[in-house]
Design a protein around this nucleic acid. Sequence first.
DNA 1: CACCATTATATTGTCGACAATTTATCCATA
DNA 2: TATGGATAAATTGTCGACAATATAATGGTG
Lengths: 242, 242
Amino acid sequence: MVFYSLHCRQIIERQCNASMTFFAEQAVTSGDKTFYQLRRDIVEGNIAAGSKLSETELSTKYAVSRAVIREAINRLESCNLVERKANIGARVVALTPEGLLELYQVRESLEGMAARLAAQNMSQQEIDELNQLLASHSESVQQGQNYYQEAGDVDFHYRIIIGSKNQHLINMLLNGLYHLVRMYRVQLGMAGPRVTTAFDEHKHIVQAISNRDEELAEMLMRRHILYSKNNIARKLAADNAS
Amino acid sequence: MVFYSLHCRQIIERQCNASMTFFAEQAVTSGDKTFYQLRRDIVEGNIAAGSKLSETELSTKYAVSRAVIREAINRLESCNLVERKANIGARVVALTPEGLLELYQVRESLEGMAARLAAQNMSQQEIDELNQLLASHSESVQQGQNYYQEAGDVDFHYRIIIGSKNQHLINMLLNGLYHLVRMYRVQLGMAGPRVTTAFDEHKHIVQAISNRDEELAEMLMRRHILYSKNNIARKLAADNAS
DNA sequence: CACCATTATATTGTCGACAATTTATCCATA
DNA sequence: TATGGATAAATTGTCGACAATATAATGGTG
């Protein structure tokens, strides 16, 4: 039996420690599968940013009725991945420097808060597991595996968000912002650098959480995200210039 | 032509200064009207908190097809007003002390941020209008009108949120949290006290914004919301005790 | 040639019916 | 009587068709 929403449309429970399929979501109905597939296609750029989403077209493409497409689009709207106008239709959001700025501005505040609450509310076991995760990432980095890149970073942030134990916060971040963040990262090709430095930042954050130092945890998380923003903004500016 | 969403599903533009119909939303389609009506009924308690939402039942009650009811429920889910489980159905959220705490925890952070950004981004004209609004509220309070209660407070916060100029933040607050906040307030009968003190707090916040003092604006807003939370939490605890 | 009104096409909004799943009822058995 | 499984009822999920609206094409007029 799968819980659908309110605060946690797709946060069931973590089912495996490594290589998760992003948030352990599980499709129970045809509409779910379509939604996940569509979201994936948008995030990964298979459907171009800014392009129009035709209901009839998508219904044939994904081999489902227009009704499930409409529902999927509505859910995508909640994720801030598409915009919708009445009687006109839906478009995939455009990726702009301003949008990125606003997104990371909010993310900085919310994830900073998450880190603070995590320092306050995570169980000792969760903290231990977080340290474990960090250790496994350390190995990956040393071995030069690019595994860490996306999944590792996402997983790290994911755990701290969950650790905040605030359902509203969890829902806003995981359901409302994270896929859009991924969309920016994926489509700008943010697989590259900043790995080792980001890893060190992660380490310090976990240390602060271990020490139950709320203030420091929040500050370090905010700074971590700020750096990340600067990094991606630089890339985006370079792309626009070319 | 009405814009439906992404970041601002229902923020068209302010159309009148006083006695606004909450956020100047405008229903263009049958589904819109149903959604607004349903939301209103939930917020005001005409549909009991925690009760189940039967699609067929609602479709007869509101005289529309099940499809529009389903869409309305989906949108209500985005507002955090209902929970939904696959193949089972939707329920109106329950009002609990824990939920209230989590809600205001997030609200404090986000509206604090909004105040800070407002101090940074509001135009001089917007600030002037804000001062005007405050003056009109002052009259209302002195004349003992209870006008101020809901609409006034909502309007005040509304303007500051809009003043932040961050669409993600605006959407999260106005679309994701505010109606739930209202639901708590309305159903707990929060029309009463704290008017004059809240008004003073508003005054100081506006002053900080006028001075472009971001730090102070954020701090005062956070404190303002904290007080509000304590006030409503006291009420809720009293209700549960009886 | 440009511009506006009108018509034609395409897309979204709404509806009722059927399929799949869950919940309730009933009966048999220990 | 309590429990378990099978059947029946009710609810949600999915579908195709029609209605309403927006967009594109057409033609007429200055």
